[in-house]
Design a protein around this nucleic acid. Structure first.
Lengths: 150, 150
DNA sequence: CCGGTTTTAGTACGTTATTACGTAAGATAG
DNA sequence: CTATCTTACGTAATAACGTACTAAAACCGG
C-alpha cells in the first residue's frame, strides 16, 4: 500500500473521528470548519492562519481572516486543533484524550515540523513542580522546541 | 522591613547580577537595555513590547518599537529575559543557570502572572519523551498555562 | 587617529489577530 | 406556521506584534 493511500485513509479516519466528536457533544462541524480541519489534516503539519486564508480562497471567493480565526477557535475549543504559540500556527491534535497525560508538541526550531507525544510521566513531573510553586489545574498541553534527529 | 523595601533590595540585586553577567561575558548593558531590564524587574511580571514602549517613552522622546525589540533581543540572548509566546510578552528570568534543569514558566491564564520553576525531574521526563519521538537537543525552557492556587 | 564593529535611531512595511456591526440560517416555543 | 432566540457567517476596518532597510553615532583595538 502506498504512502499516499495510507495518508488518505488516515485522513478520512481523522475526519470521521472529528465528526463523531462533534455529534456527541452537540457541536456543529459546519462546511467552513470542516474545510479548515481538512486542510490542516492534509498539510500534515502546522499552518498559519493567513496561509489557511489563501488555501481556502479561490478566484470567486476570498475568505476573510476572521472567518478562519472563528473556525480555528471552534476547532480548538473542541480539542481538535492546537495553536503553536511559538510558531503562530495551528496544527491538528492527534491522539485520544487521555486525561492523565501531558500532550507535548515537539517543534523543530528550524523546519517547524512537529511531533505530538503524550506522556503521563511528564504530566506527573509537571504537576509536582506546579504544586511546589502553588499552581493548580495545569493545562494538559505544552510546546517544546528542539530538533528532529535525522 | 516593608514589602517595598524587600522588592527594592531584590531589584538592586537582580540589576547587579545582570551587570556582572554582562561584564563577565563582554556584553554591554547599555542605558536602553538596562532601562528595559529594570522596567521588567519593577513590573514584577510579564510585560508586552508595546507596553514597554509606552513606559519608557516620555513627552520629549518617544521610542520606536524596534528600539525595544533590539533591547529585548539582547536581554534574551544574555539569558536575562524570557519571551512568553502564549502571551506575546516578556519577563525576567529568575534563577541560576542549571544546565540540567527544565525552566518551567507557569502562566496564570487569567491574570497573566508567572512563576518560574526549575525542575530536573521534568527535564528528564521530557528528554525521555523526546528520545522516544526521535527528538534531540531540547530547549531548556517551556511554558505551561494554569492557575495560581490562591 | 584610523578603520572596523557595535549600537542607536527612524521610516516604512509585513504579519498576525481582533473588534464592530450587519445579515442569514437553524432551532424552539407558542 | 411564525415569532423569537441563538449561532454562524460576511464585510470592513483596525489593533497588536514584529521586521527590513538605511543611516548615523559611539566604542574599541591597533
Amino acid at each position: 500500500m502506498s504512502t499516499k493511500a495510507l495518508r488518505k485513509e488516515e485522513e478520512e479516519s481523522l475526519l470521521r473521528r472529528a465528526d463523531d466528536l462533534c455529534r456527541q457533544n452537540n457541536l456543529r462541524l459546519t462546511p467552513i470548519r470542516e474545510r479548515v480541519y481538512r486542510e490542516l489534516v492534509q498539510s500534515g503539519g502546522p499552518v498559519g492562519a493567513y496561509d489557511l486564508v489563501d488555501r481556502l480562497s479561490n478566484e470567486k471567493k476570498r475568505l476573510a481572516p476572521v472567518t478562519i480565526y472563528r473556525a480555528l477557535d471552534f476547532l480548538r475549543d473542541a480539542g481538535l486543533v492546537h495553536r503553536l504559540a511559538t510558531q503562530n500556527s495551528y496544527v491538528i491534535s492527534h491522539g485520544q484524550p487521555d486525561v492523565n497525560a501531558m500532550k507535548i508538541m515537539f517543534v523543530d526550531s528550524k523546519t517547524g515540523e512537529t511531533i505530538e507525544v503524550h506522556s503521563t510521566e511528564v504530566a506527573e513531573a509537571v504537576r509536582k513542580a506546579a504544586e511546589q510553586a502553588g499552581f493548580k489545574s495545569v493545562s494538559p498541553f505544552m510546546e517544546v522546541e528542539g530538533e528532529i534527529a535525522h
